[in-house]
Design a protein around this nucleic acid. Structure first.
Lengths: 262, 262
DNA sequence: CAGTGGTCTAGACCACGCG
DNA sequence: GCGTGGTCTAGACCACTGG
């Protein structure tokens, strides 16, 4: 028995393009477990022989699966059913004050709690004039400065998320917010020390395919979309004190929120 | 001036594949506004002439843009820069009791408030044994029945979301929950009438590329991922009284949540 | 009708992985 | 070295759109 035995045939007289029919059959075989997670699909050569079509036709079929995130091609090895990486649950209370008091950043606490090894790299800090949308969200004048902190989060060496924070310069200058390590409890703890007791966060979530730089920063495979989560932190006086713009690999996250019914 | 004048040339000796270089140039041209939203890109024939490559090569380049949701091909017309449809903001208080009292479903109220014309179609209702994951989430025995309500939501005739609700049969049978139109305030109002005062909702959000049936149900173009939002409603006694599994086109939604800082 | 994208063929040469 | 996928060519014919 060869690996193409469980695949059917195609009918070139049908309306549906041959490469789509082949794609349908491969998809069905994956979804029914004929090819399990991580297993190799039949090679292009085998598919060409099995279906009696040109190589470009089977490549188009395989491209369909890859665009949908069902399969990944590995040069020189084969095309494999995509493995689902472990997911990280983001609970809506992850920024609760009690967690802050532990002295560790939310990402570190959560990851270690789930048995993973957290890392942060590519930390860059700058002090610049706020872009118009950022200035508007923070309620700042058009020429106001912000301290910008960007970094990348990894779990067990795999990148999962990039984040860029924007803090009004008058709140950040002269504090550890401008240092790579902002100290125990992170920048929220520093802001509260400055008298800006936090009241609530607004989170806006959008989804889309990644930009090229996001593909490389997050080592995203084809067919994996990203979440763009933009969180704005407000103090008890209603002032926006931080914006955090994060881009997350959707195959590594479940976002979890609890809403009151009233 | 022709439409390819603002594009550069490619260098076949570079490491980066020619079709990727062409894709990069088209992407840059779109991002810098050389080709604006809704505008037509140069035709395949024009690109072949401009770059001096085979047609399959420019088609691979165009496929890159389409997979990322930047462009859409229209048979017989051309390849166009994708237009962003109007987005719908989902506020985290959209299921607050006060809204329910208006007597209209949340979707209707919100859409009309935003000046759109809401429709619901493909309403199907059944009564079946709960699947294992649904039974587990609802805290039901393995052989328990649920009433399943599925439907599709449209705005101005464009599908934006499909939803499937699962309600324990003992709460739904003999009520309007089993009817296509569940009455004023929707099924949550009916559940509260049964004495199940709602306490909170849990929402879990994941993102992924759509399945084939979702592509057709939501009329999704290539390169548009979906949100899968699964909401569980709990009554004041802590019982899960409904699960609502929704699939949303990411290009039509911004999900908005407000979190307390403590 | 001419122009557009959609599908398919039958090759070619290359780069990678592994034994 | 051989099998794998990656890139590219130069055609062919088809289906759709619009004037």
């Amino acid at each position: 028995m060869t690996s193409t035995d469980r695949l059917g045939q195609v009918d070139p007289t049908l309306d549906r393009a041959v490469f789509r029919q082949i794609g349908d059959q491969l998809r069905a075989a994956i979804e029914t477990g004929v090819f399990g997670e991580g297993e190799r699909l039949p090679s292009e050569t085998q598919l060409v022989a099995h279906y009696g079509v040109a190589r470009m036709t089977v490549r188009q079929a395989l491209a369909l699966l890859q665009a949908d995130g069902l399969a990944v091609a590995e040069h020189g090895k084969g095309v494999f059913v995509r493995q689902r990486p472990p997911v990280r649950r983001l609970a809506s209370d992850r920024f609760a004050r009690q967690h802050r008091k532990s002295g560790k950043a939310a990402f570190i606490v959560e990851t270690e709690g789930a048995g993973g090894h957290p890392t942060v790299d590519q930390i860059e800090i700058s002090d610049r004039v706020a872009s118009p949308p950022i200035a508007a969200k923070l309620g700042l004048a058009a020429d106001a400065h912000v301290v910008i902190r960007s970094r990348r989060y990894l779990i067990d060496g795999h990148p999962v998320e990039t984040a860029t924070s924007y803090i009004p310069a008058d709140l950040a200058r002269g504090t550890r917010i401008q240092e790579p390590n902002p100290g125990p409890g992170g920048i929220y703890a520093r802001l509260e020390e400055q008298g800006h007791t936090l009241d609530h966060f607004d989170e806006e979530i959008t989804g889309r395919m990644p930009l090229p730089h996001e593909v490389s920063a997050l080592q995203l495979g084809a067919g994996i979309p990203v979440f763009n989560l933009v969180r704005t932190a407000f103090d008890v006086e209603g002032r926006a004190v931080e914006i955090c713009d994060t881009v997350m690999a959707t195959d590594r996250y479940i976002l979890h929120y609890r809403l009151p019914a009233r």
